[in-house]
Amino acid sequence: MSLDDATVRKIATLARIDLADADLAPLAKELSGIMSWIEQLQEVDTDAVEPMSGGTDMTLSWRKDAVSDGGHADKVLANAPEAHEGFFGVPKVVE
């Protein structure tokens, strides 16, 4: 499996990681190498196999509908790179 530059560019965009043009080709080569090693999975016959998505076969347990949290905006904002008047601040978004 080989990834072309455009695919790598698209992935970087989806992942929101800035990528210099110069890094594109080497990264595409490296990722292609890893993906072609992974390609061996295609040999396995998985036709009748149920996918396993978790590390356990338990099912979800539910909690009561009780308010047990909140009321600590200070702690929520304590690590924020930017905060104003109780809000997080980000560069202006135009919808």
């Binding site: 992974i38 999975l41 196999v49 996918p51």
Partner: peptide
């Protein structure tokens, strides 16, 4: 399907 789902199925076989 080719990667993630496939891997989940192989994971089942390994288990």
């Amino acid at each position: 399907d080719a990667y993630y789902l496939k891997a989940q199925k192989v994971r089942q076989l390994i288990y």
